[in-house]
Design a protein around this nucleic acid. Structure first.
Length: 430
DNA sequence: TCTGGGGTCCTAGGACCC
DNA sequence: TCTGGGGTCCTAGGACCC
């Protein structure tokens, strides 16, 4: 019998966070909106009852509900991150085996608590509510996938009062027979349709399917889901979060961008944000990708979407270099004739910074550092303001360079890269 | 001049998660 | 008029190199 695992999930997390500090939002329909107040990303129970869907455009909600329009808040990720950290610190008091799964969810290994699972869970729930004001639901089962199912039940079934321990075989099967396939972790619309076409229409039917058959017809991932439904843990608790493999900074624009200069500023700021995130995680990037796209919701406009990947000469966490490289990548895909709705910067091939044996700057007065600073100056002059500060660019000693330890495929020429500021755009050339 | 296999990289897209 | 952002994993064709 494997140790039980709990999934703790904050109810309507973003909406609940807003309510903690704004009591007038309690008990009324409330939605939290995405960037530019574009669409709904969180709903209170009262808003769910109005039939508002996640991802529904805000303007459509307003049109549809007219006088019954819910309260709304623009999203505030700083607040949510802070509240999340507070909740997670409390959870850590309830188990030594904690996996922070997302901003509002955590898995808890409960080895040693087998005899008092329910009371333990109720204490946890009570303390989180009392100390943070955030209501949570707790689902406990033999595997992560089943803990998700139990959590779902804890949320939906009033009788559970927020906690559901699901360890009894008959009770599990009854629940799995009731749910749609898409309520199972890892199964969305496409997979559910493919399964249904084989006569597998409920999680219970999936559980009773031969796992090897599933691996052959689908994938090893879905096979794991089957075994997890059967009660065999296949997805381990990951207490130390794995390092990120990519970091993205992107935004939809509030209005169409048509000027290259405007796009350059946007991309520079995304590059800078992505690099900051990366340095916070002690990582360095081997490649950078920049993408731009028009508005797919305007079919009457000419559509265009391109991305350009650029290998950096060495893996680096240096904001200045990232910005210069992003600028260069943008030059390769920019076409003046389109109206752009979105752009972004992705950092790829991330490696531990301490294994890089150096980002770019061995000494601030090295030739390369000087070249980079000149490139930054050029960018700043071009944009007419301090787009990139040296401090933000991380121009400082602390990384010593050792080319020999780096992958030989990072062969881009720095001198070429750093002249980006004044090379005119040449189609097809990067 | 013709033949071919294997490997990596780039670009693009799909499916899933929160 | 108004349609999110940040992730993971996988697939596939073509370019290019050896």
């Amino acid at each position: 019998m494997p140790a039980p695992v709990a999934l703790v999930d904050c109810n309507n997390f973003y909406a609940s966070c807003e309510r903690v500090f704004q009591p007038e939002l309690r008990g009324v329909p409330l939605v939290v909106l995405s960037n530019n107040d574009g669409c709904v990303i969180a709903r209170s129970n009262e808003a769910k009852a109005l039939g508002i869907a996640i991802g529904e455009p805000w303007h459509m909600v307003r049109e549809r509900l007219g006088a019954k329009i819910p309260r709304m808040r623009s999203s505030n990720y700083t607040l949510y991150g802070d509240m999340s950290a507070r909740v997670m610190r409390i959870l850590a008091d309830f188990t030594p085996d904690l996996e922070l799964y997302s901003i509002d969810e955590a898995f808890l290994g409960l080895a040693g608590f087998e005899q008092r699972l329910e009371t333990h869970a109720r204490m946890l729930r009570q303390r989180v509510l009392q100390w943070t004001g955030i209501p949570v639901s707790v689902g406990i089962a033999a595997t992560k996938t089943l803990a998700k199912v139990a959590n779902h039940r804890a949320k939906k079934d009033q009788a559970c009062a927020g906690v559901c321990v699901m360890l009894d075989g008959a009770a599990i099967d009854a629940e799995l027979g009731r749910l749609p396939l898409t309520d199972i972790w890892g199964i969305a619309g496409r997979l559910a349709r493919r399964l249904a076409s084989l006569g597998i229409e409920t999680p219970l039917a999936l559980k009773q399917t031969d796992a090897r058959f599933i691996r052959e017809r689908f994938s090893v991932t879905l096979e794991r889901t089957v075994r997890e439904l059967q009660g065999w843990p296949c997805i381990a608790l990951e207490e130390a979060p794995p390092d990120r493999k990519t970091i993205i900074a992107s935004r939809s624009f509030g209005r169409m961008v048509t000027e290259r200069r405007e796009m350059e500023e946007a991309v520079a700021s995304y590059a800078s944000r992505a690099a900051e995130k990366m340095r916070r995680q002690q990582l360095a990037a081997g490649r950078i990708m920049v993408f731009v796209q028009t508005d797919p919701f305007r079919p009457q406009d000419a559509q265009y979407a391109r991305e350009r990947v650029l290998a950096l000469p060495v893996a680096t966490a240096d904001t200045g270099i990232i910005i210069v490289a992003a600028h260069r990548a943008l030059g390769a895909i920019w076409r003046p004739e389109f109206h752009y709705k979105k752009a972004g910067v992705m950092l790829l091939d991330l490696v531990k910074a301490d294994r890089v044996q150096g980002g770019l700057f061995d000494r601030p007065d090295s030739a390369r550092s000087q070249a980079c600073m000149r490139a930054l100056d050029k960018l700043n002059r071009r944009f007419g303001r301090d787009t990139v500060s040296y401090a933000a660019a991380g121009v400082r000693p602390g990384w010593s360079m050792q080319r020999g330890s780096l992958s030989p495929r990072y062969t881009t020429n720095w001198d070429e890269l750093l002249t980006v500021g004044d090379t005119p755009h040449q189609p097809g050339r990067c």
